[in-house]
Structure formats: structure tokens, C-alpha cells
Design a protein around this nucleic acid. Structure first.
Lengths: 210, 210
DNA sequence: TGATATATAGACCATTTGGTCCATATATCG
DNA sequence: CGATATATGGACCAAATGGTCTATATATCA
């Protein structure tokens, strides 16, 4: 109901007539995302979210509905950020090999030290909730599919540029790389040395590229 | 204190003098493991564990201390099972290539359908707790290291048997394979087709073997 | 049999959980 | 100004959380 009224206000473009929202919803979602990212869904309690967003209970529930809805918003933000990076690094106008190298380098960056130990909200959510929570499952499956498409495209372009080793199939290589990258995010929990992760990622790509 | 008395009874080998334990502790740990495996640590509530183990609250707390201790026991069981499989499949007396193929096939098996959707207790725990829980972190890091050693050994033996492609370094290949396998467990949450996973795993190994 | 030790169900507990509600303050518009 | 709409802190809530305790039953050994 609330949602409908928001919709109609948006579509009719009437100026809001009461006190306008005085906090930045996007920023609040971002802060909530950080909390979920660091602690996981179940381990994040309302007080954590209130502290992070600096909202009162009332405001938070009025703005976002409930914990789960807020979580989905946070997850969507996280996914949107990941997609943006991906579309940038694997941009078809870029050299595909450079793109792939940059893409892997980004994962390496996020897989060492404190970044690594913090983990990946998407992987953590997949493991914690994807089985039980259909909304989460859909998002995870969709992101995964997109990732597969983008990486396979990059390999296809590399192939057309004659940069793939003999016997390398783009879609197969893409699936390998993707599993490798998710796995990096898991291994990262032990915060391995950056040089090691980078060398491993390079060694993998070197098996595909010539 | 309780622990000490148990120890002394074990070392002196005296017959227990009261009513003996009438339930199978190992079986109880196994059932608890299944619950944690399906739901994760935080999402598992005491009543879930009582139902699964068929123990009363009193018995469970007397036998295992608290939820966290029981969880560590369950995790240790899970790790022990994984180590047993690993030591069997990567046994030095076996052909290393056969061993590696069998090892990957096992992961593929566990990464499709219902098995896949259920996930991996170790990966889930790493993502959910490894950052905050030192006991869990140690176990994860230790298992990870062992896995790395075993797989690298298998690749080394394959190398000595002249079965590695040019330019493949055993320890590097091992790190790649391990990340790939953990990643498989993540991807498995979307329950991909078995044939696809198997083909991907084969394709990866084929990049290393000749 | 009697002493010892365990198992069990369930009462009980403080704390925390996610979530609602309300009185009050305040910012905007007509 | 007056109407409208939002923000806020905090009171409040039922349910669930992990955990303790006790009375009672029972299985073993000496």
C-alpha cells in the first residue's frame, strides 16, 4: 500500500506535500550493506543496523519494511557494484586479454589481507541463504549466469583475435575461471599473500592464452 | 573439571560405576553435523539440535557443553571425513592422474542436484564464521593447507611420471585446482547440471595433463 | 541391596530477537 | 498560518534465543 502511494507519487510527479525525507536512503543502504557484508545475514541484529544507518527503529522500518527487505536492497547494491566493475573491465571495446587480466586482478586485490578476510557478500549469502531463500537464490543464479556470459564473451573475443591456446573452448574456459574466482573468495578467508594469489591467477590464465 | 574426571577414568581404565551412557555420542555428533550442514551455524537453533540428536536439553549440555562446542565437534567430524576421502583418493600408491581424476569427480558428485544445493559445511562455515571465530579459522586454514599439500604431491608424482604438460608447476597447479574446487561448491548452490560440472573439471585437468 | 552415575522431561531464566506503536518535533507546501 | 507528511526516540511486545536446574527414573557395580 505504501509502495503504491510512492509509485503514484512518482508517476504523477507531484511535489511531496509534507516534510521531506531528511536522510540519504542510498547511503543508509550502503551502510547496511557493509554490516551484512562483515557479519552475515543472521549474525546481523537490528541494533547493528540502527547504529550503522544512524536511523531510529521507526524510520528504518518505515523506509525499508523489514530486515529481510533491507538485506535484499543491500545485496542488490552489492551486485550492482559488481556488475559495474565487470562491465567496465570486460568491456567489448577493450582488448579481451587485458580485460580478463584486469578482471582477475580485481579479484586478487579483494582476496588478500583484510579485504580477503572480510569475504564476499555474494558468496557468503549464497552459502548462508541461497538454499532456503528464493529471492536470494534468484539473485545469485542470475548474477552467476551474467558473469558466465561476460567472461565467455571475453574468451570468445580473445579466440577471434587468435590469442587462445589450442584446444581452449571459450565457454569451458569461462566456467573454469568463474569457479576459480569464487574459490579465491573462499580461500581468501585465510588471507593468503597477495603475490601468491596473483601468481596463481596468472598461471591459470596462462594455461588458456598464448 | 568434568573433562579431567573423564580423562582420569580413561587413563586408569576403571569401569564406570554408575549408569552408563545410553546414547551413541558419535551418532549424535553426526546428526548434529547434518543439521549445521543444512542450515548453518547461526540459523540452527537448540530445538533443531535436540530434535536431530533426540537428546534432552540436559543431556546435550552435559555431553557437549554448549552449542559452539557441539558445532566444533561436528565440524571436526566433517573435516575428518573429508581428509579420509582425500587420503584415499590421493594415496601415493595410486596412479596420481587417476587419483586426481577421482578426487575431482568426488567434488563434481557433491556439486550437483540436491547435494550441491545443500552446500559444503566447510565452505559455509568459512564464510560465516572464519573471520570472527578463531577456532573455526584455525581449522579452516589447517584443512586448506593439508589439501594444498596433498594435491601438490599428486601433481609432483604426475610430473615425475612425465604426465604433466610443459610449463606446469605442481604447486601452482594445486592452488588453481583447489580454488576451482571450492568455487565449484559455491556454484553448486544453483545446482548446475552434472554433465556440465564434470566436463568443466575434465577440461581443467586437461590443461595440466598430457 | 545400596551406592554411584547417568538420562530425561520440562520448568525456568535472562537476554536478545525482529517488529509495532506513539507522542512529539519539524520541514515543506498551499 | 494551517495542513500534510515525515523523522525520531523510546516504550512496548511476543517469541525465540542459548543456557541452567531439578526431580525422577534407571542402569551398572560392589
Amino acid at each position: 500500500m505504501v509502495y503504491i502511494s510512492i509509485m503514484s507519487r512518482q508517476t504523477t510527479m507531484q511535489a511531496p506535500r509534507g516534510r521531506p525525507r531528511s536522510f540519504d536512503m542510498d547511503a543508509a543502504v550502503g551502510r547496511a550493506m557493509n554490516v551484512f557484508w562483515s557479519r552475515g545475514y543472521h549474525a546481523t541484529a537490528l541494533p547493528d543496523l540502527l547504529r550503522a544507518t544512524k536511523l531510529s527503529r521507526g524510520s528504518l522500518y518505515a523506509a525499508f519494511g523489514d530486515k529481510h527487505s533491507l538485506f535484499l536492497r543491500a545485496l542488490d547494491r552489492y551486485i550492482a557494484d559488481a556488475l559495474t566493475r565487470m562491465d567496465d573491465e570486460l568491456d567489448p571495446r577493450r582488448d579481451p586479454v587485458d580485460g580478463l587480466r584486469a578482471y582477475l586482478a580485481g579479484y586478487v586485490e579483494r582476496a588478500c589481507g583484510a579485504n580477503g578476510r572480510r569475504g564476499c557478500l555474494l558468496v557468503a549469502t549464497a552459502m548462508e541463504l541461497a538454499g532456503q531463500d528464493a529471492e536470494v537464490g534468484r539473485r545469485f543464479a542470475s548474477f552467476f549466469k551474467t558473469m558466465e556470459t561476460r567472461v565467455a564473451d571475453a574468451f570468445s573475443r580473445a579466440e577471434r583475435a587468435g590469442k587462445l591456446s589450442a584446444g581452449v573452448e571459450p565457454s569451458s574456459a569461462a566456467r573454469i575461471v568463474i569457479c576459480f574466482l569464487w574459490g579465491l573468495r573462499v580461500v581468501a578467508k585465510t588471507a593468503p599473500a597477495r603475490a601468491t594469489s596473483q601468481a596463481t591467477a596468472d598461471a591459470l590464465l596462462d594455461r588458456f592464452l598464448r
